Simulated scan of single mutants.
Amino acid sequence: MIGSWAETARLLPWSGPEGKPCYLVGDGTGYLSRVADTIESVQLGMSAELLDHAADMLDDSNVTSAQLRFLVARMAEALCDVHRIAESRGARLPAPAYDDPDDTDGRESGP
């Protein structure tokens, strides 16, 4: 019984009280799944914008240490978001189709 819900549980792109992870159990087609998809999209977009901003700041010889610290703090937050998205999406990937547990690259071995 526990295995069946775990296979359909989705790690959501936000945390609950005290920073605990939030999960959604379902088929991925409901309203909350669409909200989660939208938030993930926004988070990924913000991460890309931060990367562009970082590149601009690194080219600027007048940037202050306070500005760099602020940028690094925002980038750390964005990295946490992207890591959570990757973990959530990776957990929802189908299991590999190969039979040999030692064959991790998915190719058949043979002569």
Rank of each mutant, 00 (worst) to 15 (best):
Y31P: 05
L51F: 13
G3C: 07
D99H: 11
L51H: 15
S88T: 01
A66W: 10
G19P: 00
I39L: 14
A86Q: 13
A6P: 03
T8I: 13
S47C: 12
L71K: 02
V35C: 05
L12V: 00
E18A: 11
R92Y: 06
A76Q: 05
S47R: 12
P13Q: 04
V35H: 07
G45A: 09
S61N: 07
L24I: 03
D56A: 14
Y98G: 13
I85N: 04
M57E: 10
S109A: 14
D103Q: 15
S15W: 09
S61V: 14
T38W: 12
I85K: 00
P111Q: 12
L51D: 14
A86R: 11
T38H: 10
R107A: 10
S15G: 08
S15A: 06
G30A: 03
A95T: 08
R10Y: 12
V35S: 05
G28V: 07
E49R: 10
S109R: 15
D100I: 04
M75Y: 08
L71E: 03
R74T: 06
I85P: 02
D105G: 03
A91T: 00
L93M: 11
D105F: 12
E49G: 06
E7C: 05
A36Q: 01
D81F: 11
I85E: 05
S41V: 03
F70C: 01
E77M: 01
M57P: 00
I39H: 03
R10V: 11
S47D: 12
A66D: 08
G28S: 01
D60P: 00
L79K: 03
G3W: 14
A78P: 00
S65K: 08
V82Q: 08
G90T: 04
Y23V: 01
E18V: 06
E49T: 06
D56V: 14
M46H: 12
G106F: 10
I39V: 13
Y31W: 08
G45I: 07
P96K: 03
L58G: 08
S88M: 03
L58I: 10
A48E: 13
H53A: 15
A55T: 09
A6E: 12
A55L: 12
V63G: 06
G19W: 11
D37L: 08
R34T: 12
E108F: 14
